[in-house]
């Protein structure tokens, strides 16, 4: 029996700025019927990793197209700052190493959506399509307020940090049906490291507003209706400013990869099959169930 992540999935690393960036590559899917889709490159969010964020999407999307995902790596020497530019170079390096000469569909989640969007603006020859999930263009007061509480809890080594993060990440409707017992694994959480701190800091000062009109990629913006970390207005702003963008919403919190992974798989899968099936400017209604 073969599986979507069978033996063909390979692990490797690309080197950029003197550091190694780990990636997974699903390889090409079984031939037949699906036409020629661009490979998907999955970019995780703040404090994430391939396994933590794309454990569901990677194998499910790999059934119908090649999927590559990467883990951001901490730049050395760490001079106390992380820049968007560094993360963009890591994504580009993986693309060039694994998929030389190929145009790809960049898929970014949260901070990964910011990175993917900026990279799409800077490298139109690389990103033919873009999916921005729960991304944003410019950090606002609500995000700074949350970031401030997070930093304070972190500095105090507060045991409340993981619960606070879950409280912000999960949507109200999802929590309404969950019990604390079910959430227990999330609430244990792991203690953030230096690299997480750097990413949180970067989060607090994002402004890619000027880049958005430069994005040439055919774009799908996905907002999360009940998002308290990156409120849905930010996704609407991306949709408004990226020229060839269409927009849809998922009724989840920020933790959409955890709450609604199957919905996200299908949205991305359909978009990558026919990116322009919906015209630019279209608000696509959420699936009827």
């Amino acid at each position: 029996m073969t599986t979507p992540t069978d033996a063909r999935t390979t692990e490797g690393s690309a080197t950029v700025d003197g550091i190694r960036v780990r990636y997974l590559d699903s390889g090409e899917p079984d031939p037949g019927g699906e036409g020629d889709r661009p490979p998907l490159v999955l970019v995780h969010g703040t404090g994430g990793s391939i396994e933590r964020e794309y454990g569901y999407l990677f194998p499910m999307l790999a059934a119908r197209q090649r999927v590559v995902a990467l883990d951001f790596a901490q730049p050395v020497p760490a001079d106390g700052r992380l820049t968007l530019d560094q993360l963009e170079r890591q994504v580009a390096a993986v693309c060039e190493s694994v998929l030389p000469g190929r145009r790809v569909t960049l898929v970014g989640y949260s901070l990964g959506a910011v990175v993917a969007t900026a990279l799409a603006a800077h490298r139109p020859g690389l990103a033919v399509n873009l999916v921005a999930v729960a991304g944003w263009a410019a950090t606002d007061t609500q995000q700074r307020l949350r970031g401030g509480v997070w930093r304070r809890l972190r500095e105090d080594r507060s045991p409340a940090l993981a619960s606070y993060t879950a409280f912000c990440a999960l949507g109200g409707p999802f929590l309404a049906a969950a019990t604390l017992e079910q959430l227990a694994p999330l609430l244990e959480g792991q203690v953030p490291g230096d690299f997480d701190d750097l990413q949180m800091e970067l989060n607090q000062s994002i402004d890619i507003t000027a880049l958005l009109p430069e994005v040439r990629a055919t774009t799908l913006v996905i907002g999360c209706t009940h998002d308290q970390m990156v409120p849905v207005r930010h996704s609407k702003a991306l949709f408004a400013a990226i020229p060839d963008a269409r927009y849809t919403e998922v009724a989840s919190g920020h933790a959409v990869l955890f709450e609604r992974p199957a919905q996200l798989v299908q949205l991305i899968d359909r978009f990558n099959a026919r990116p322009s099936a919906q015209p630019a400017g279209r608000v696509i209604p959420e699936a009827r169930v």
Binding site: P4, R260, A262
Partner: peptide, 10 residues
């Protein structure tokens, strides 16, 4: 989401 197990995602 349960379809992933039917799809035999490991």
């Amino acid at each position: 989401a349960g379809f992933a197990a039917r799809r035999a995602a490991p």
